[in-house]
Write a protein that binds this DNA or RNA. Structure first.
Lengths: 273, 273
DNA sequence: CGCTACATTGAGTGAGTTCAAAATGCGTGG
DNA sequence: CCACGCATTTTGAACTCACTCAATGTAGCG
């Protein structure tokens, strides 16, 4: 599109924005991982047979702002995030773009490339990061050799599909407040699973990027953060978030509410029958 | 044309609402299909080896209003639509529900069940329909025997993921008019591919269902149809649609527009590969 | 320091929702 | 066959949430 391949974004991601305990990217730079290590990252249970596989998967490092793949680029590898934070962006026919996900440690991306052998979206590093290249051919061949691995692959793809469905559902039915609350809950839970603090963390993305992801404007995101702050649900200062009332966020809705009244009534009727 | 067999819902789907050339469901009732027939339906290219497979897949018929599977139900089969129209519905923790897709001939559904071995959404027949049961175990075993088939399976799953991504993108960025226009374009193209008229067709779903799918209220859907009618883009009478200006629908946007200005500017900045 | 990107906050507007009422279409039961 | 009942659709009027436009504040970097 508009390739200006020089300078990575100026002052994009200060150290202060790193997560507590963020593995120092440069020092831990690893070059290869075994199949077992990849499966562990993806939270796939491994059998001994799989654990024995000696195939190695290459790591690649990207700096903040760098693009991992572009739209239309020929597909041949899937990616697993080992460290760092990314975004995936879809750009429609009219140049409108929309953020689809914020992959982080243990997430798989690039799956959309399988269908037409071209990536349908682009992936960009939000921070310096380390990703593992999974040549798709090799991966599916391993799946053929190890049925449990194969079904795990299907499982991971299915999980991705469910994620997108849940996203679509959220965009279709929740208010701005509810969307932002869910986003915070999601981040909190993910950070918790990754061993960081689920209460205090730093956002890796701009208000604009959050807005694009949630189908809102950056101003609405900012205002909603401020509102949560005043309500005592969180404390927010720029990218730094401190969750004070997790439960309130988790149960927040303020939904358009009556959109489905009749349909629900009908469903109740049918359930009774 | 077709005698309505005592459908549970009263006056749910009148004969007038059937598509031109709709295969007569009762008469063509088929009990089993070969792997090749299933692949053809799914638009998967088949090799001779696959064409030779003698495995048979069972058909099941559902009447309008019947449920194919529920949320939480144990997963063991995928479904391919042979005829008729369905909807898939996700219901969130608070009972809010959202329509995710309207599967029709050649579509696969149930993929979301793979991950947790339970369906994550429910599927309901909008019209009488005929679906093919694909036991997932059997399907993946066949994939292992025929690598081309396996990669086709991955391809179909990837296609589903892209569909959801595109949906999320649309819900996040398009105006009500643009969403409705896209919906009509989508239906028109699908009907065309299925050999029906892409210009004149009957909607198989209510305004409420369309609204749920598009993240709008039923009133907005109705008003938008009326507006398109007055603009001369379509002619609409209840469920009957006649598309007059396909191109205008296809290029319609009325997008929030400035949401991504800054981000686009930033996108010009690209780091070296 | 000044530059640039990012974030916050305010005021006004508008697209889409909510609530309400009337019209249409279809099946059922008299 | 017609009248009634029910689901659905259409249309109107008022409201409101989120967007737009704009100004100000903050943080890091050259």
């Amino acid at each position: 599109m508009i390739p200006d391949l020089s300078s990575p974004r100026p002052h994009a991601f200060p150290d202060a924005a790193r997560p507590i305990g963020d593995p120092s990217w440069q020092r831990t730079a690893k070059l290869w991982s075994t199949l077992k290590e990849v499966c562990d990252l993806l939270r796939i249970p491994v059998t001994t047979a799989v654990a024995m596989q000696e195939d190695l998967f290459q790591h690649v490092q990207f700096k903040a702002g760098q693009r991992i793949h572009t739209i239309g680029q020929p597909f041949d590898v899937l990616y697993v995030v080992n460290s760092g934070f990314l975004k995936t962006v879809m750009i429609d026919a009219h140049g409108n773009d929309q953020i689809l996900s914020f992959p982080m440690k243990g997430d798989l991306f690039g799956v959309d490339g399988i269908h037409a052998a071209r990536y349908e979206c682009e992936a960009v590093a939000l921070t310096n990061c380390d990703v593992i290249l999974i040549p798709f051919k090799k991966f599916s061949a391993l799946g053929r050799a190890h049925p449990e691995l194969e079904s795990a692959i299907y499982g991971v793809m299915s999980r991705e599909l469910i994620r997108e469905q849940t996203m679509a559902s959220m965009l279709g039915s929740l208010s701005a407040e509810a969307r932002v609350a869910r986003f915070l809950v999601y981040l909190s839970e993910r950070f918790g699973e990754l061993g960081y603090s689920g209460k205090q963390f730093n956002l890796r993305m701009t208000r604009n990027e959050i807005g694009s992801y949630l189908g809102l404007t950056l101003e609405t995101v900012s205002r909603t953060f401020s509102a949560f702050n005043e309500m005592g649900l969180i404390s927010v200062d720029q990218r730094a978030i401190d969750i004070k009332d997790f439960n309130a966020l988790k149960t927040m809705r303020r939904l358009p509410a009556s959109r489905n009244r009749k349909e629900k009534a009908a469903a109740a009727q049918q359930a009774a029958a």
